[in-house]
Amino acid sequence: MLALRKHISPGWWLVAPFFLLVACLYLGPILNILWLSLSDPEPGLQNYSKLVESDTLARIMWTTIRICVITTGFAVILGYSIAYAMVHAYRREQSFMLTFLLVSFWISILVRTFSWLMLLGRKGPINEGFEAIGLISEPVAFMRNELGVLIGMVHYMIPYAVLPLLVNMQTLDQRVMSASRNLGASASQTFFRIYLPMTTPGIVASALLVFILSLGFYVTPAVLGGGKVLMVAEYISVQLLVTVKWGVAAMLAALMLAGVLAMLWIMSKFMKLSTVFGGASS
């Protein structure tokens, strides 16, 4: 016993309380859910075979993946623009930009979703504004469809897309770009052939982060989709809280978890994960 204690660093005692909490109260039930996907209502793979058999499930999966891909695309492109401008701005402007970014990061998800509900409604300011300037003759349905979900989700995800890109761009050696310009390349050549390839790790990390967050996103699709756009997270909640079918919900959770862990693994090949998740605090 004494020999064992000598080998265990005393630091572990400080880690133990939270470790036990996570292992018992978090990992335990997650493993139980994974098991449920194979055993509820009866043992076997029938929950997984529903993916092929049921049209509803296939449609929900497809909707989720499509919305996540489009959201990721927009969030990363727009986030790239913000990150690029921030890195190249003067110190004072940079801190203003960071303030805006962090404030938007911190505003409650419910407040933001509520705002979009107000802005995008049939009698909302956007529709009325467009009508006033004669752009449209009758209200456009911005909500209760995929468009509304996408607007809300891209808006929420942009700050998350910016942070990994910012971390990546700040570490680039600016002399490489100067060298490219001095050797006669134009500004756009330098950007597309030097800068963009050098920021690939940032782009990959940012895309995967946004995709992971989008996959399990619940609030915005549920409100702005208005029941018309059913994504996996909302479907899981209906399965559990309304129809109480653990098997199917557990199967969807297992797939989502597998997807998230696979993407994290890919992400770790491109970037130290701690820099991505610690980005907000630096």
């Binding site: 859910i33 619940y218 559990l240 959770a253 998230v260």
Partner: peptide, 8 residues
């Protein structure tokens, strides 16, 4: 994802 945490 929070939805999985919620389930757990």
């Amino acid at each position: 994802p929070q939805i999985i945490s919620a389930m757990a």
